[in-house]
Write a protein that binds this DNA or RNA. Structure first.
Lengths: 226, 226
DNA sequence: ATCAGGTATATTGTATACCGAACATGACAA
DNA sequence: TTGTCATGTTCGGTATACAATATACCTGAT
């Protein structure tokens, strides 16, 4: 072990806390896409000055969770259907890569972890709890990304996930999609467990493709309604 | 022509200019990895206040071009060999995707553009100009990313390119690598021109894999020397 | 009623001054 | 070598002010 490994480095600055709080709030849907975020209001609400607020907003801007228009303000980003499609296209490649890498390194305890998530997902599916389904779904993918052991890949996937999260549209709302998702997840799990790299990649990519298709359907539907 | 087309919308705020200037300076190697960037010095050098400097630094931080350590300062990021390997792994998947998409949409004028870049590259190769080789190389990949027609993909590739650019190590320094690169590029070009999606993907991925291998070799070599 | 033009107001972008906290450094002692 | 202390530097954050810009409203002319 190298000495560099015990460096502790970071604790929390205001700016970091604000960044995380806002990020969380946006992703939780507490702020809606298109909504304006006024610096003074945020500052007053958090009982701090404008400076750390602005710095946090700049970081969110770089992450594309908000959009800044000079002298007008920052707004929660509005993701278009086109962008969503692009994100799914990229995710196909990257989730495929993640699953392939996970299959390569699959350790027994990792598999147990993944299996545990799947069990939870099945329960949620039986009960029909959409929130739990979404949560479990995210955990499944996040876990694979983690098992892949590639930090760069993991962070990119997180960012992409956050971006489509802005849509507040889930493919799981499409009839039959929760069941199909379960099945596809099991397939990916099996491939990883069998250390079948190629199949893991293919199944993961195909899974994302279908999810994207369903999300697209749901999107256009909401577009017609609302 | 619609009136909307002459909307100017964005002009430059200080913060944006600073962001771009710093980014450019870092990537050009004007600041070295590990070098500290002192807010006051930058502010004085640019004849502005600390405020826009700090905001620009936060954006660079989010892009991982600099690293901030609370109460110590921001430093130009130092990319490790491990991170570089991770980046190449992700790039394999994404350059593959980009080439595949480019192959799908290949229009005659796009092919002419790519071919033009290749011609320049051959000239640079004959003359042995390393700088031009690097420049042309980047242009080749950037063009394919553009032809892919996926903005999300394009931006991610740009960021990844910037990150390994921090290494200031080029695979093209490895003996025989410039020639091999030319050959691989031609292969990718031919596949795109033939609209052979699968082959374009495979060749592009393989090309990145080899470049990464070469870069890794060059990295460890420099590690032993310096 | 419509629209050009002006005006008032709000918000952002930037500058400045200031403070405490954390860190770096070097001297010094044990 | 280790620990302690004093000192200076820089950062993180606050407060305030002001310029630039956007927005909404109002007015009067047509």
């Amino acid at each position: 072990m190298s000495l560099d490994d015990l460096r502790l480095s970071d604790f929390k600055t205001m700016q970091q806390s604000v960044f995380e709080k806002l990020r969380e709030a946006i992703l939780a849907g507490h702020f809606r896409p298109g909504q304006r975020l006024v610096e003074r209001e945020l500052a007053q609400a958090m009982q701090i000055s404008r400076t750390p607020i602005r710095e946090a907003l700049r970081k969110l801007e770089e992450e594309k969770l908000v959009t800044n228009i000079p002298y007008r303000g920052v707004f929660v980003s509005e993701v278009t259907a086109e962008t969503a499609a692009e994100v799914y296209q990229v995710r196909m490649a990257l989730e495929g890569l993640a699953a392939a890498l996970a299959a390569e390194k699959a350790a027994p305890e990792d598999l147990a972890l993944l299996r545990g998530i799947m069990v939870d997902l099945e329960k949620a599916s039986e009960k029909g709890h959409l929130d739990e389904l979404i949560e479990g779904n995210n955990r499944f993918h996040a876990t694979i990304a983690k098992l892949a052991g590639n930090q760069v890949l993991r962070e990119i996937l997180q960012t992409l996930q956050a971006n489509i999260g802005l849509l507040r549209v889930t493919s799981l709302s499409v009839p039959g999609r929760p069941e199909a998702t379960l099945e596809e997840h099991w397939g990916i799990y099996e491939a990883i467990a069998a250390q079948d790299v190629t199949r893991a990649r293919e199944l993961a990519a195909e899974h994302v493709r279908r999810a994207g298709e369903a999300a697209g359907k749901e999107l256009t539907k909401r577009g017609e309604e609302g």
